[in-house]
Simulated assay, not measured.
Amino acid sequence: MVATVKVFKKTSPNGKLTVYLGKRDFVDHQDSVDPIEGVVVVDGEYLKNRKVFGQVITSIRYGRERDEVMGLQFCKEMVLISEQIAPDSKTKSNLSPLQEKLLKKLGSDAHAFTFQLPTTAPTSVVLQENSNDQPMGIEYDLRAFVGENQDDRGHKRSSVSLAIRKVQYAPSLRSQKQPSTLVSKGFTFSSGKLNMEVTLDKELYYHNEPVGVNILVTNNSKKTVKNIQVSILQNVEITIVNSHFSKRVSHLESREGCPITPGSSLTKTFMVTPVATSVKEKQGIALDGYMRDEDVNLASSTLSERGSNDATGFIITYTVRVQLNLGAISGELVADVPMKLMHPMPGTSDKYGRGKGAPDNKVISRYDNNSYAKDEDENIIFEDFARLRMNEPE
């Protein structure tokens, strides 16, 4: 049985330029990023003495569009890659099997290209908003156009723009580390302390996987614990403006085992599961991919061995917070434990993820009028995206 290959295809409005890509998600492996490998087909008679250029552009929106007044802008657009694709400036080598198959199938008007994203480029992420504004976050576009030079962008009818994503997956081997913390609280007018130890089952969890929170409370004080709250917080740092905030993405409150009276203790495990569907109406939640995708997940934790000081974008972390409520006068005891939330590496068996653990390309549902046609000879599925980006003219 011959495996079927899925190819993403998009044609310019005038039908003279077509771009083919084998995938839209490109994985950051810390020391390298998957190459962007594709093929461009351009009408030779239309091209004449002009050239085809390819660019990879990242848009970083760190403020609401409605707040842009008096020339103030909260969006930065950077061209990460800009190269000539056709006519070929040199003989292409190290082509992928998909590129070789497409070049053979599409003929002399086809030209292969390979772009390499820098490892310092931020991971794709958007913030959930209940408005018609452009979503805050980081988006990538692969653009191809016909022009005299790299700055000639006046002919939108002969240009193509495809959304792509830069993503990170969990390491293939999960760490055996169990994050934990121990906190205590003393009281001014009474002796003894209230102690709490919080331990997680593991450090890294996959999306949709329940998080086991183990709690040990020892009450050596004269106060009484009335209830326990367990939350998972999503922490977002916007490095470009040096701001940060936290949003609660999962929460439970329990009175089981309470009240914890003076001299008593409690050992208990709580299970909480952070999922995007439970906070789909809450603004400011960071999501993986595009927020209009029905199957979108919470944003994955940002992994970076290069340190946050070198990152330009949105850094996502997660924290498990446990609160012991002692009443209005005595206050509360709070413990925070860090955790990671990610997709498993594609091909990894995981009962909590989709398929074999890898997110699919449903982020592309931001385009309309999708159609599929199967070529029986080459065993290739072409997915045709008939419209440009939603905020651009057709």
Score class of each variant (00 low, 15 high):
332 E>M: 05
76 K>W: 06
353 G>R: 00
250 S>T: 13
315 I>E: 09
146 V>E: 07
303 L>P: 00
22 G>L: 05
353 G>N: 02
134 Q>S: 11
177 K>H: 13
98 L>G: 05
147 G>K: 00
110 A>D: 02
358 A>S: 15
274 P>K: 02
124 S>V: 10
354 R>K: 15
326 L>P: 09
106 L>M: 12
244 H>R: 14
63 G>Q: 11
136 M>W: 01
360 D>L: 04
1 M>S: 11
121 A>C: 10
5 V>Q: 15
301 S>M: 07
135 P>I: 00
92 K>S: 11
73 Q>S: 14
135 P>C: 09
219 N>Y: 02
258 C>M: 06
156 K>S: 13
249 V>H: 05
96 S>V: 04
183 V>A: 10
368 D>V: 07
215 I>P: 05
221 S>Y: 01
90 K>H: 05
105 K>E: 11
361 N>V: 04
106 L>Y: 07
22 G>N: 12
204 L>G: 02
262 P>V: 02
312 T>F: 01
161 S>Q: 08
353 G>S: 09
361 N>F: 12
314 F>H: 05
386 A>S: 13
134 Q>R: 12
9 K>W: 01
12 S>K: 10
42 V>N: 11
374 K>R: 11
164 I>T: 06
199 T>A: 05
285 I>N: 11
86 A>G: 07
64 R>D: 13
97 P>Q: 10
338 P>F: 07
378 E>Y: 13
389 R>C: 01
316 I>T: 01
42 V>E: 04
